[in-house]
Write a protein that binds this DNA or RNA. Structure first.
Lengths: 327, 327
DNA sequence: ACAAAGACTGTAAACGCTTACAAATATCCT
DNA sequence: AGGATATTTGTAAGCGTTTACAGTCTTTGT
């Protein structure tokens, strides 16, 4: 293995004929370096293949280690979060930052300080939010949080597109399997569903809204029970792929075929889950990149703002034209 | 945010009345420190909650950044893995090592070298295993892998204890809901079940073994279908808590009460999952600590070996004495 | 009792980087 | 021209840890 010493800031300084301080300033894009000097330094860095050593930067309190904070009580092993984790790792990596898993104390606060944080599953009056704000620690939230930096997918728009798709296939009895009403996501998706119905002049029927909780098992039980009790519909929009999977299993078990008898649309398009599903794709990678970009803004200082990441309807095998049965 | 400075080696030294050099020696388990001094230093470290700062160690060339490698194709969001992740983070952190999320390439190999690795979900002839072995990179596997460093829970023993518990409650018709046969875990748990039956002279009945796949939904469907087709039993040992949950839902939906009609035992005792379940507890924290200990051994060089972590039956509300029905 | 050897401990330099401060140089104003 | 500013640069002290080296005690052997 390459056992030559990695070039340091000192090497760069010597070769560029400047001091280490100047090199550091160039590195951190600080003002007050003569353009020519900057140019020379950058050239040498390029030539040497210089890469700043993270550990040393960290020691001076300017590390780019980013932590992830998950709200206490939120299940960490929700596929969505896990995937987001992965993409955040990747996105940070590209920017030369590192994602470190930091253990948290009982209150959910990190035991070890990081340069910035990305928060998942925070609720509106999360005490940790206040703590971060007070400490002026840069942070970005996943979800909608006016007043902070946040990134969220276009849940309402996605739900609208999903429902519209069913409507355009001719379905009029369209059920919706919701997430918990406590969660913003679930509410936004329900709203999109309702708006689409409204746009197509299909009356909203409360009994077609089935209460789920984002879990596959509950979806199965709710669907099966509803069907057995006589509820009928030809289209179903489930607020997540996992629920769509449970719903599909239930419908099959009561003798329905998908999509011949019931058309089904999910939401999320997570890899490895329902890969045959017509669904609304969230580009998690894009969300991760957006979060990292905002984190950098936050690091640089600026006015907090949010970002909506667009979603996209993906047509696969679980939806079809409403059969017009001849009487 | 907690803006108190983290305690440093200097703080420890001052409070213990020794020099930083000595503290460092204690930290690195170097010889030549008086036992009493060592004791005192360790006490102060404990009291202060001192944790060495990884960045500083890295600067001196003694960094211990550890990576986690998950077999490609293995679902990362399995609760068990996620929890293991958390505990590994914690355990490594205590030892002054850091767990860094490293993106991997298509083959599942890390893009950035680390001091050592912990592998999850590897299969017997994983190409990555060979790669690590060839590169002499220290690594520990979770699961049973003769010839390497490995840590695994006592699956067979736990299954034995679970089944014995049901037997001692008087149950004789005991079903077993398995995991996939491709996975070692599933096989070992099945073996424990069979051995317990044997020990109590209860004949093994193949039709009482129900094929699951560790998922809640499948468990529900398999159980419900089996019951509806007339299969009867008074005890059920599910190879995981998640499956036990699905099974319980199915049994309830067909009108059975737990534990009055059917006694149920799970496996894993994951927090947030089936907290009312009689189950076999795996101490994931202990497994994580063991993995870290082995990793350190591996780092120090030595003969690879494995470690079984004991499990424990936890009695809760889902098992009861077999009712003796008077005819 | 005394030197030599051994056990233990303290000291300070080094790791690569940032940054407050001081110093040097350039620019502007009257 | 002669200061007053503004711009650019260098200097050196730190960040938390390790470790070679030099001390200071103990023990041991004679």
């Amino acid at each position: 293995m390459d056992n030559r010493r990695m070039p340091t800031i000192g090497d760069v300084a010597r070769l560029a004929g400047v001091s280490t301080g100047t090199v550091s300033r160039v590195l951190n894009q600080r003002a007050g370096v003569h353009p020519q000097t900057r140019e020379r330094v950058l050239e040498v860095m390029e030539r040497l293949g210089y890469v700043p050593m993270q550990a040393a930067r960290e020691l001076t309190g300017r590390g780019d280690t980013v932590g992830i904070l998950l709200a206490p009580g939120v299940r960490r092993y929700i596929p969505y979060f896990v995937l987001l984790f992965e993409h955040l790792t990747e996105a940070l990596w590209r920017e030369g930052m590192r994602l470190e898993e930091t253990p948290t104390d009982a209150a959910g606060l990190p035991l070890k300080p990081a340069r910035g944080y990305i928060l998942l599953g925070a609720h509106d009056h999360d005490p940790r939010l206040e703590a971060l704000q007070n400490a002026q620690t840069p942070h970005v939230l996943i979800g909608v949080y006016p007043g902070a930096y946040w990134v969220a997918p276009d849940d309402e728009g996605g739900a609208y597109a999903a429902t519209r798709h069913l409507l355009e296939l001719g379905h009029r009895q369209i059920a919706h399997l919701t997430g918990q009403p406590q969660q913003q996501v679930g509410r936004e998706r329900l709203l999109g569903y309702r708006k689409a119905l409204e746009a197509y002049n299909v009356p909203f029927q409360p009994h077609l809204v089935l209460d789920g909780d984002f879990s596959t098992l509950t979806a199965y039980r709710v669907l099966r029970k509803a069907w057995e009790q006589g509820l009928r519909f030809s289209g179903l929009f489930a607020a997540s792929d996992e629920m769509a999977l449970g719903a599909a299993a239930a419908l099959e078990d009561v003798g329905m075929r998908i999509p011949q008898d019931v058309s089904l649309v999910g939401f999320d398009d997570l890899p490895e889950i329902g890969t045959a599903l017509t669904t609304v794709r969230q580009d998690i990678a894009q969300i991760a990149r957006a979060a990292v970009r905002l984190l950098k803004e936050s690091l640089a200082g600026g006015a907090p703002h949010g970002l909506r990441v667009p979603v996209q309807l993906v047509l696969r095998g679980t939806t079809s034209l409403k059969e017009v049965r001849t009487a």
